[in-house]
Amino acid sequence: MTNHSLYKTKLNDFVMEELPKNEQEEIKAHLNECSECSESINLLKETLMIFSAPNFDMPQKSYFASLAPRVRERAEQKEKKVSLSFLFDNRWVGAFASLLLIVSSAFLLYNLNSEESEIIVQDEPDYYYSSIQSENYTISGLSATFSSDDWELLSAVIDEEIGEYLEIYQYDSDDDQIENLSENEWHDFYENFSKENIL
């Protein structure tokens, strides 16, 4: 590579004063002899002159002084929006919710229209362990929420006077009444729930 070719590759660095001092001097001397490099340097300087200054005015100080409060306000607005926008803004969540709704509806219709639905877990061999998967399942005026395959995660509100299960809900370890049910009591619960009270 000739000196000219070598210097030519370093003109950008030269004009930005990025080169070591001795190289800066070498190229500077070369420019006196080489019209091509000299023209190129002039063009680079011109380019830098045009582009080095921003093409905009900075906002006034008041803009930056008000920035933090505006960011905070924005954060608060976003927090408010999150709960509402969650279902509507996120297409995947929306799609999943729609899919869940369709599956749940189909399951509900299937169970309401089939004889098997009369006994929700009729074929369940391990009594209170069920494979039912549904949410907000409603039948015969009673509301049950199945959020897990395991019945042991479910519990019941029982109206003792009339002996009916008013509501089935998720197992709550703080609920002593349900927590203390023995296995036999759970069995009774299952039998009553599925065959008597619901139907």
Binding site: M58, F64, L67, A68, V71
Partner: peptide
């Protein structure tokens, strides 16, 4: 925000 606001604005702008 006050310290870095101008710098971030200038870069983004």
């Amino acid at each position: 925000v006050l310290k870095y606001g101008e710098r971030i604005y200038r870069t983004v702008r």
